[in-house]
Design a protein around this nucleic acid. Structure first.
Lengths: 342, 342
DNA sequence: ATGAAAGCGCTAACAG
DNA sequence: CTGTTAGCGCTTTCAT
């Protein structure tokens, strides 16, 4: 069955003239072993190029030393920045990272099922994915350490979360535009009922309406559009909205990716930005700076890093009380917003 | 030690009134079991929510059902598209994916060491990372199924590779510019001696020189610049190059990311593109379309998908002969290139 | 077709 | 401080 077997703990034991147990102890930093013995063992390990078999260790200890990450489409720059932060936080530890990519709701459910209730991972980090109530209940029941990044929901009270206040974010962007003097402000975002139940766009829209209401301005239904979370859809949607008899003079985008689409639409239509149209984004991904996009920045990389840290803490101390950390938001004014011209 | 134990194969066996061996056989699609027995077993599995413990299975079979991916900075859009392809190809299989992120050469070496010679993974996919000769030798010696994407090297003859011909790519871009009438063509790329030994930039430059030579035009040293693989560096480099007394009228960028930086520099300097400056990229990442960048497209997503497929084949049939697949390149002319104006 | 039993490689008591 | 031993949960002969 096994063509070339790598050396086992017994080979090392034999060479070092000790018992397997002693080898195991010598390798564990924590256990006390006579220095001379440990040296001998380590030498044997070296010459045999011995590497402990992780599967065996897992089986024996019940700890897996691996963390699962559930994440949708990590082609999205915002997602990949979060993921990057998480990966970097893990790099400093001996933990492995297994990735489960989610592109359909079935895969989401499958992802949960796969890691729950099967001593497969020590913890799971969930990025920009809202578990169904059922999934959440299962996680809590299985009492598997879990932390959610960019997902918030009433049924999630029992889970650790790293979030920003997206409602406030939506308000910030809208108030900025209002302050500039815009009155016809549109909104382009994700389908509220999107496959992953991402809530950011919905909350941005909520903040947008709050800001408008506070300014005594009523949002027009035709100035709202939702689509899939991608540039193309946003571009198409914006093109339609901007072709209206009374187009908006500014658009709040639910994300920078949406904003890029809107910028594309403006270009298609020969509209100058910010002269004919102001646009705001959300996230501040890498490219936004280069495009001069005015946006509401959130700490993406940091969210991943922090989420992973919290998770690792949780793994070593599962009894920590549930926390919900809210990261700061910051309006970054660049070149896609200006006063409307009459 | 183990607070809440999930159910084991013995629990299922007891409930179904069969032996553990039979449960195991019932779960393996391939083995023949009396239909009635299998039904009983499956029912028991269902009621107990039994999931086989992967660590135990691994230990027993020696197969890990996991694939490792070694990848640098997957924040780079080109990398994350490749990775995405790989992940999608794996999603259709029962394999797990463990990711090892590489940001330093030490991490690269560590990544190799970690997966080699330690029955930890069934195969490894290496993206945009050239193994050191030593690493490559080890992979071959360990005879672990491995495939390289976007890495090519004489010492790698023993490994499967998915590549494009970057020299040709560099030539295509340069010839396009030459055909437009440019004579002062610059080049901005990565450090030739970059931490991951990525060779794409170097090869693009080689193709660039070939094309110039064929046109009887000598490249000027001051029209060559290299830096880290990021937009900021490219932007800075381009700014300097374009501030020269005799600046180039066109620049070949080693990647779209570099090209974005160059576009930024042109904007900083008030240079119109393509009127005052033509720019070509390499890769055709998602944003390039929106920016109207003329570029040499390579199938990024496909490279990941194909690489993973080849690897999976290799895992099930380790004796396949070594292959080297060259993916096609395509010049996509958009709006950042035009005839030079005199 | 199914049961019994022997490991896979490691860790963690338990003795000594 | 170190050797011995008993599993961890599963697969896989080998019998029956």
């Amino acid at each position: 069955m096994k063509p070339k077997r790598s050396s086992t703990i017994r080979d090392v034991a034999r060479l070092a003239k000790v018992s397997p147990g002693t080898v195991s102890r010598s390798l564990a930093e924590t256990t006390r072993v006579a220095p001379a013995t440990r040296r001998r063992v380590l030498a044997a390990v070296e010459t045999l190029h011995y590497r402990p078999n992780p599967a065996a260790r897992r089986l024996s200890t019940g700890r897996t030393q691996t963390i699962a990450v559930l994440v949708p489409f990590f082609t999205e720059p915002s997602i990949s920045e979060r993921l990057h932060g998480a990966v970097c936080a893990l790099a400093e530890t001996p933990f492995d990272l297994v990735i489960h990519n989610v592109v359909t709701p079935e895969q989401r459910a499958h992802g949960f099922r796969r890691f729950l209730n099967s001593d497969q991972v020590d913890g799971v980090l969930i990025i920009s994915l809202t578990p169904s109530d059922e999934d959440a209940a299962q996680v809590i029941r299985a009492d598997l350490p879990a932390v959610l990044i960019d997902a918030d929901h009433h049924a999630l009270g029992g889970l650790h979360r790293i979030v920003v206040d997206d409602v406030v974010g939506g308000r910030m962007a809208t108030e900025h535009l209002l302050g500039l003097g815009h009155t016809r402000i549109g909104f382009v975002g994700d389908f509220v009922d999107n496959p992953f139940q991402a809530t950011a766009s919905r909350d941005h829209h909520r903040g947008y309406r709050q800001a408008l209401a506070a300014a005594g301005s009523a949002p027009r239904p035709e100035h709202y559009a939702e689509g899939r979370h991608c540039r193309k859809d946003a571009q198409q949607l914006a093109r339609e909205m901007l072709s209206l008899p009374e187009p908006p003079t500014a658009i709040v985008a639910a994300s920078d990716v949406h904003a890029f689409g809107i910028l594309g639409a403006a270009r298609d239509l020969g509209l100058g930005v910010p002269d004919d149209l102001s646009v705001t984004g959300h996230d501040d991904v890498d490219m936004s700076d280069m495009l001069g996009l005015t946006t509401v920045r959130q700490p993406l990389y940091e969210s991943g890093r922090l989420g992973m840290r919290v998770l690792l803490d949780l793994v070593s101390n599962p009894r920590a009380e549930r926390s919900r950390q809210v990261l700061p938001l910051e309006l970054v004014v660049r070149k896609t917003t200006a006063r409307p011209r009459f």
